Amino acid sequence: MPRNGAPTRERILDAAERLVIDNGYAATSVDRVIAESRTSKGSFFHHFASKDDLARALVERYAAADITHLYAAIAQVVADTDDPAERVIEFVRVFEEGADDLMSAQSSCLYVSVLTERELVDRGTSSQITAAIVAWREAIADLLRAALPPDSDLDAEALADHVFVTFEGAFILCRATGDPGHMRRQLGALRRLFEVLLVQGAA
Score class of each variant (00 low, 15 high):
D80H: 14
L13V: 02
R192C: 06
F167Y: 07
A49K: 13
A202N: 11
D80K: 15
G201H: 09
D100N: 05
F45W: 02
R184M: 04
E195C: 06
Q186E: 09
A139S: 15
A6H: 12
R118T: 13
P84Q: 06
F48V: 03
E96R: 14
V112Q: 08
P2S: 14
G181E: 15
S43H: 08
M1D: 08
E86T: 01
G5A: 10
A73N: 10
A99W: 04
I21S: 14
Q200N: 04
P149R: 02
R145S: 08
R11C: 02
A64H: 14
S37A: 15
V88F: 04
Y62H: 11
A72M: 10
E96G: 05
L154P: 02
S126D: 15
D66R: 00
S40T: 15
I21Y: 13
A202P: 02
E10A: 04
A35F: 07
I67T: 02
R191L: 02
V20A: 09
V59P: 04
S43R: 10
A55Y: 12
R145P: 07
A16W: 05
G188C: 11
R9S: 06
A72G: 14
A135F: 10
R18W: 03
D122A: 08
I21M: 15
F171C: 13
A189W: 00
A65D: 15
E17I: 00
H69R: 13
R191A: 00
C174D: 11
K41G: 12
D151P: 06
I140D: 04
I21Q: 13
G5K: 05
R87A: 06
R3D: 14
A135P: 08
S152T: 05
G178W: 00
D101M: 12
A79F: 00
T8A: 09
V33Y: 12
F167W: 12
D31V: 10
T130C: 09
P150T: 00
E157K: 00
L54G: 07
R137K: 03
A15N: 06
L144V: 12
N4C: 07
